[in-house]
Design a protein around this nucleic acid. Sequence first.
DNA 1: CTTAATTAGTACCAATCCAGTACTAATTAA
DNA 2: TTAATTAGTACTGGATTGGTACTAATTAAG
Lengths: 150, 150
Amino acid sequence: MIRMSKETDYGIVVLAYFASAKEGLKQNAREVAMESQLPLPMVRKILKILAREGLLVSQRGAKGGYSLTRGGERISIAEIVTAMEGPLAMTECIEAPGECRHEPVCGIRTSWQKINQIVFQALNNMTLSDLTGPLPGPMGSDPGKLVSLQ
Amino acid sequence: MIRMSKETDYGIVVLAYFASAKEGLKQNAREVAMESQLPLPMVRKILKILAREGLLVSQRGAKGGYSLTRGGERISIAEIVTAMEGPLAMTECIEAPGECRHEPVCGIRTSWQKINQIVFQALNNMTLSDLTGPLPGPMGSDPGKLVSLQ
DNA sequence: CTTAATTAGTACCAATCCAGTACTAATTAA
DNA sequence: TTAATTAGTACTGGATTGGTACTAATTAAG
C-alpha cells in the first residue's frame, strides 16, 4: 500500500494547526496535543523531529514551546514528508541505488526515478496554506497548473 | 515512508516484461520468474492477482500460462497499483471514511483527498509502454505534459 | 540559587504488516 | 490417465510502526 505513515500524517496535521493559528503562535507540546486531539507522547516525538528538521523553531525550558519558522505558504507538503521520513523513495532502488540485486537486469529503474519525481512534484506543488485555506472550494496556489495534470 | 510494496513493485516489473516482449506472448510462471529474476513462488502469487484483476488472461492446465489482456500503452501504472493493492489511499481516512476518530475535528481531510487525487493522476498518466520504451531518453506518451509539472 | 516546566535524545516494546513459502484443488493438453 | 499448470488459501519469521518511558539539558520565575 502506498500510504503515509501515521507519524507523517500527524506531522502534517500538527503543522497545519500552527499554520492556521495566529501568525507566529508559540505553543508547547501539551497544548498542541490538546488542540489536535493526538496522543501527547506522539506529539512530543513529532515536534522534536520537525524542530530538528528546521520546520519548527523550539524554545527550551520553562514557558518553552514551538512555532513555525516560516509562513505556511512557504512550506510544501513534500518538504514535510521529507522532514518526517527522509527523501521520498517509492522503491528501494531510489533510496539505495545498487542494493537491489535485480538492478543490473531491471529494465525499468530509470522509469521508477521518473515516477518518483512526478509524485514528488505533485506533493511539492501543494503548501501548508493550501491545506488550511477556505474549504471546500478550489485549492492550491495555482490550481490550474495542477488540474492540467489530467 | 511512502513506498510501493515489493509485491506491487514486482507486479509492475512482471507486466513491463510482458509488455516489452512479442505482442501477445504467453508464458507460464516458471518462465516469467526466470526472465525477471524474481522468486518463483512470489511470481506465482503476483500472476494470480494480476489475472484475477483482469490485467492478465490466464490459461490453466498443461501448457497454460499468462498473457496481457491489452497492449501496454493501454495499461496505466495507477491501474496496476490499484490491481495489486486496492484503491490508492494515502491515509486511513481516504480508504475508510468515518473510521479515524480524529475525523470530526480534522480540518484537512478534504485536502488529503486532493493530494491523493493528484498522486493518482500522476500515476495514471504513465503507461506500461512508457516504462518499456527506449531508454535512456525522453519518456512517456506526452513527456511535455509531464515536464510542465515543475 | 533553587525549583518547576519544558524540550532533546535515546531506548524500548507490543502489535501489526509484509515478503515469501507451502499445500491442496481445479483445469487441461497430450 | 497422467503430468503440467493455474486457483485459492493458509501459514510464518522477521521487519516495521505506533506508541511509551526515562534521563539529560535548558530556562523562566520566585
